[in-house]
Each structure stands twice: as C-alpha cells, then as structure tokens.
Design a protein around this nucleic acid. Sequence first.
DNA 1: ATGAAAGCGCTAACAC
DNA 2: GTGTTAGCGCTTTCAT
Lengths: 327, 327
Amino acid sequence: MAVTIHEVARGAEVSVSTVSRAFTVPEMVHPETRRRVLQVAGELGYQPNRAARGLVTGRTGNIGVVVPDVANPFFSAVLKGCAARAREARHVVFLADAAEDPRVEAEVVGAMAKQVDGIVLCSPREDLAQLERLAGIAPLVLLNRDVEGVPSVLMDSADGVRQAVEHLGALGHRRVAHLAGPATSWAGKERLRGLRAAAPANDVEAVELGPFPPTFQGGVQAADLALARGVTAVLAFNDLMALGVLSRLAARGVAVPRDMSVVGFDDIEMSGMTPEPLTTVRMPMEAAGRAAVDMLLDEQTTESELQRWLPTQLIVRSTTTPPAEVR
Amino acid sequence: MAVTIHEVARGAEVSVSTVSRAFTVPEMVHPETRRRVLQVAGELGYQPNRAARGLVTGRTGNIGVVVPDVANPFFSAVLKGCAARAREARHVVFLADAAEDPRVEAEVVGAMAKQVDGIVLCSPREDLAQLERLAGIAPLVLLNRDVEGVPSVLMDSADGVRQAVEHLGALGHRRVAHLAGPATSWAGKERLRGLRAAAPANDVEAVELGPFPPTFQGGVQAADLALARGVTAVLAFNDLMALGVLSRLAARGVAVPRDMSVVGFDDIEMSGMTPEPLTTVRMPMEAAGRAAVDMLLDEQTTESELQRWLPTQLIVRSTTTPPAEVR
DNA sequence: ATGAAAGCGCTAACAC
DNA sequence: GTGTTAGCGCTTTCAT
C-alpha cells in the first residue's frame, strides 16, 4: 500500500495537520518543523493522494480533454498544448477519445465531470442543445466551436481563407475550388464565410465543393470534382485532404505547381511530414490547447473574456504559381 | 455542487448503502428497489464520484499513460489504442507527455502513482535502475522496452528487419544501409540485432550508419552518408527519417525507386500521409496500446505472461526495386 | 434485502 | 505554530 500522511506524521513526530500544512501552506509551519517533515516525507517517498485531497477541497487538480480522434495530428498537437499547460499548473490531464461520435462525447463528459476541474472539448460534433446541457454539468471550454455563453478558443480560419484567396487572386487565379469537410464543422462554416467574403473582393470565383470526408481519400475524391469544374486552384479542408488531392492529381497527370495550385489547412509541418512544399494556412493548434487550459484555470475567464481568438497564417510555398493562362 | 449518493438515497427513500449496492452489486438489491433507485438516479443525473470510490476500494478506475511526445504519430496511435481499451473496461486514461525528458518521465510516474491502477510507460528513456525503482511505486507495463521482471509489450522489430532484408536480398540488393535512431532506443537495438542476424543469411552486407535524430532532418542528414557509402537500399529508423531520406535523395537527383530503395518503420499510413508508396515495416502501435492496458487490467499478468510480443509486417510498395546492376 | 456505522487519505475550521 | 476533530462521497462489514 502507498505511504499515507499518517506515517509521515508519525515519522516526523508531528500531527497530520502539520504535515498537511507543510505541503499546502508551508509558511504556516515553523521552518525547522517543515524541514523535518519534508525530510521524512522524502525518505518515505510520500506524495499526497490527490483524489483524497480533491474530495475535501473540491478541486481535483485534473483537467479533462476530449478529442474526436487522438491519432489525428491536428488534435494530438492540441493535446500536446493542453498537456504542457496543465503540467505548468501542476495539473494532470484526463484524456478521452470520442471516436468521432457525438454520443460518446456526451457520455465521457458526464463520466469525467466529477473528477476534473474543467473540460476542454475539441471540435465537438454535438448539437447546440447537448452542448448547452454539458456546459451545465462541468466547466467547459470549447475549442473550434462557438456557443453563446460558453467560453471558447477559436482560430481565425476565416482570415486564413482571406489570406489564401488574396494570395491566389494576386497571382491571377480566377476560379478556385473550396473542398469542404464535414458539414457540421464549425471551422468549415467559418472558412466558407471567409471565402464568400474574400472571393468577390479579390475578383475570384469560388466553386464550393463537398462535403467530403476530411481524409486522404476524401481528397482523392474531391480532386476529380475540382478537375471537372475547371478551377486553377483548390483550397482543401485540411492537410490530409490536400495530400489526397495532390496524390490524385499526380495520378491523373496534372502537374501540381504548374497546372493546379493546392492550399491546405492545419499545417502538419511540425512533424516534418509535409511531403512536398504544400502551401498551407497554419493553425496554431498547440497554442490553442494551451489557451483552452488557461481559460479553465483562470477563474475570471467565465465572467470577462469568453472567447479567445487565435490568428492563423498563410505559409506560402512553391506549389502556388500563377495559372497557365496568366503566365 | 454535484449530486451525491445521499440525495439519491433520500429521493428513493432508501439508505445510501442500498443506492451504492444498486450500482455496484445490483443482484443484491430487490429488483423493485433497484428500479426505483436507478430511476431517481437517472432523473437527478447522479454519477458515482469515482475518486471517492477509489478512496475506499483502492482501485481508481484510471490508467496512466506516459509518452515521450504526444504529437509523434507513433505515440498518438499507441495512445489511441490505450484509450480505446481503457474505455471498454470503463476506465479513464491519465495522459502525461514527458517531453522526451527522462527526468520528467520519472516525475510524472510519481505524481500519477496514487491516482491510477497502473501505468503504461511508452519507450521510456530512463536508465535501468530508475525503471526498476518506478516499477516499485506503481504497477507498470513497459512498451517498447524490456526490463527483467517488469511486464512489457514488445513489437518484433527484429523480425521486421529480417523480412525487409530478405525482401531486398531477393531483389538482388547486396549493400544496404541501416540508419540508426537514438542510441538508447530499445527498438533500435532490436533492429540492429535483427539486421546482423539476417544480413549474412541473405547475402547482403549491412552498412550501419548513425545514430541520427529520429526526425525528418535526421533522414536528410543520413541520406548523404548513405549515398557516400554506395549502398543500393536503406533501412530508416522510422517513417519520418525515411521521408527525410526521400526528400534529400530527390534534391540530389537520385531517383528513388530506380537508383535507391528506401524502407521505413512505424508505418504512418493510417493517417493517409505516406506521400509516396514507401515500403515500410508496419508496427502494430494501436494494438500495442490495447495490449498494454490489457496487461494492466489483467491481474494474472504479473505472475504468468510477462511479455507480450506483437508481430510486425513488411508492406512492400513500388519503391523497392532491384538495384541497377541486377536489372 | 436493507440499514447503521466505520473509515479510505486528506484538509479546514477550531481550539490551544 | 501545532494538535484535535469533523467531514468530503463513497463502499463495506456487521447487524437486523
């Protein structure tokens, strides 16, 4: 069995409260006593049982993170940010993989509720009513989803699209396809919003395609459609799709920097895996994770600043070139 | 505040023990009583506080998982397996990102120890003594590391290398380079072992290069060395490195399926990101995560089967071809 | 089949 | 500055 506070108390010849204080409010115990307590605790390898502590304080020191898919590099980056920030605050993260299923999502939030101080819900697939219900059972911070009254961390994808469209427009592209991801995606709607606003202003015609699955295969599928519509550039929902597009274009003999420009989202370059210099809109995923945990830890969050917007940035590489007719 | 067992008891007009039993040993309470209790619990949205439960039962229902880097697709796949298996067993996973730092690793194991039923330590960077110490403070299952007396899940990379070497040898390759990753990697040592055993048997000369950082950049660096040594094929420590090699070879004008064959490990195809048909040794990462949690949950594990070996498999794609001199 | 009560490891009044 | 004590929400004897 693990070593308890009582054994430390006995060893240091003090009461349990003194031991407790030595750990939680050190300045309240005599330096000499504290030294002795800490010393004994060290020797015994004592570490306070956080569950027991939580039971009385009401604060668990745990923060929950729910992602639709851990294996998706987008979310693992978010997760990394959460874990890093949590550790700084000496908190621990509870992870749940919702397997892209809204029902599982709701379920795990319920299961976690009691054992965490708050939950970061990433790109939740739930409907509004569910989300509002969940926000009632535990402090929530939404990532990539915006619900009235619920704190959230948002990435400015609309602006990312604007940057991309501006860039393409400046190069001379006049018809660009947008390959949508899942219809329920908040980020997807934002991008569409950005697209519709930016396209006219930059004299480009937006061809809206989709929805497609946000996967490599989805990109393959989308590429054929884009080709059929005679665009000179495509904006893919994410890097995975962009990769699929690239692959399909290659297979159909369409030279990518020359005949068609491709822009992706969710830059995964961090893993060094961007296989060709694919132009992308960089989403600050790790920063978003940090920010979300941050809001959870910051008590005042709920009252004042309910939304945290993170900027996105277009990273231009060699795969965007002027269309053939302009060159 | 959350709804407690007392409120349910009051609502259902029974004692708390009955409520408790209705949840933990349903067959011990009268069907009618149980129905009423569950009904009230449902209405109130009651969910037992697992921390409190753990305090008395000694079992927390939590599984700790420590990875060197969540953002590494290899580990996020493992993590996914862990999360999935944990959920099946109605357990929750505690995640810690050790940031590739052995000290942090030891630290988080200590911090987690009390609040979990066991810990999965992935590719631990610690030295043997540390690991043995950690095994004493919490039930541990090692992944990708083998320590006497500590349960572990291992992937048969040596056999993977054997398959690769056999394949290359059969195609006519006579000199193949092995690009090592971090010197402390257990998997790396295993691969080397497999290589040294398989090379002579297949009439191929193994050129051992490295160590290199297990990254894209590491691959770039390694490619030049491999080129200088006049090999016709390379075995890269992992896919990231393999990608780096590919990239560098392309930059130096070496045609990849034709002038040089490249084989990677840690197949990341699951994310649809294998950019070119790179031949790889598939590591069953998700299965490994499942297996690890499985061993933690299975009480008997510690006594009987201390090691679980998972098979690896060579996935041949078009990038392995006979060397020029054979064609 | 059910209730009463003890206690898991800890913190937070409340004494001294 | 330190000790005593009463719970936190739950399970688990031990009665009944």
